[in-house]
Design a protein around this nucleic acid. Sequence first.
DNA 1: TTTCTTATATGATAATTGTCAGTTTTGTAA
DNA 2: TTACAAAACTGACAATTATCATATAAGAAA
Lengths: 225, 225
Amino acid sequence: MSKSIFSNIDQGDMTDLDSKKITTLYIKGQKIFYPGQLPIGVYCMSSGIVKLSKLGENGKEQIVRFAKGGELLGIRALLAGRKYSTTSTALEDSMVCFINKRMFFKLSLKYPYISQKVLTSLSHLLEEAEERITSMAQRPVRERLAESLLFLSCLFKTGEAYCDDPSNGIISLTREDIASIVGTATETVIRILSEFKEDELIKIKGRKIVINDVPGLRKIISSYP
Amino acid sequence: MSKSIFSNIDQGDMTDLDSKKITTLYIKGQKIFYPGQLPIGVYCMSSGIVKLSKLGENGKEQIVRFAKGGELLGIRALLAGRKYSTTSTALEDSMVCFINKRMFFKLSLKYPYISQKVLTSLSHLLEEAEERITSMAQRPVRERLAESLLFLSCLFKTGEAYCDDPSNGIISLTREDIASIVGTATETVIRILSEFKEDELIKIKGRKIVINDVPGLRKIISSYP
DNA sequence: TTTCTTATATGATAATTGTCAGTTTTGTAA
DNA sequence: TTACAAAACTGACAATTATCATATAAGAAA
């Protein structure tokens, strides 16, 4: 249960919000929204992890980002007044509440800190996306995979994208999902994971991955001559 | 000269703004801001084209997006309260005005349509960035280059990223810049451009590129089996 | 114009990554 | 537990893309 963006509103509004919001448990694999739908409100995640993905030209899935506890989901489409451009799928069982747009806009008008938070959050997402573009363009798959493993380990361990110690998080994703984060073929992911395992950078238990050597992975990420 | 986001404010504010904003002509190649600097205001572009780029791990430049007439520049960093993460460089002679943050926040507080516009603009940028991530991950260089040529032709012809007829725009960029948009090596760009020229999809005049066959390029972009 | 630096172009080759085909393992559900 | 479908893995090979070396052309400056 992460802290909600709405936790600073006053008692009356909170009661009102609580009575109107719709909370749903999405179990692993369930989808929350689909591309093409017009948003009629916004989702807020209280717990869990959701992947946001697009379909490429060839029908291949591309994971573009994740949403986690405490974050708003589907806010981009709502604000731009456009249809969802991504599919959102729960990667773990996730508690998600839905707030209709009338209520959301009312609150964000009354509490400027909400708009402020949304603005900085979008700004961060944009920076992260641009960082990712650079990484995709310039780093080889091996480095991008190492990078993603550290990120994912934090995400599954702490629910945050960055953490001090990414070791011992249990990454529970299919190789196909990992490939569609890194932007490569599933087989390539499998091969490099085997190398990482060979080099004792990670441990593989069944289809779960655990990070074993954080400095080792970090070294791979910044390995330019 | 494109329409400014501030064109709807009332007479008094406009006079105030005009007296306080600082307008500068940046000539081609000049830089407007650098990564690491803390924003003390926001730039608004009245004309021209600016590239926003990052340096990758290996010191290679990656162009992450463009800003054009009518758009705000450096707004992401200002809103997030963080240092610029990109370098901005004029690709053509560009008229850019600077508005200090006190003034900007005053105006955006008084005129909600300004915040609204900023929000939708950030939302669009994020969507474009995510589209770009997908493209980088899944499309071969050839397709990404065709895509970028259409985009650039519109940009140089009309000052817009999308236009009905991208033909006859004059793309005036080095092959190295093009490579750093597409995310590939300069030689690869040169080679594929030669092929495109051979196939009469484009014309090359010195170091300028003109699009000759829009449907032909579009066909390359959506060429899955 | 001539010179000179920088950008463009081309070739040869190596490295990376993708594809396809087939085998083994895993986790789940009967 | 057993059965089975899906996921993980492996190998061989092909395609794409990068790198390096070198030649040519372009455009700016003297």
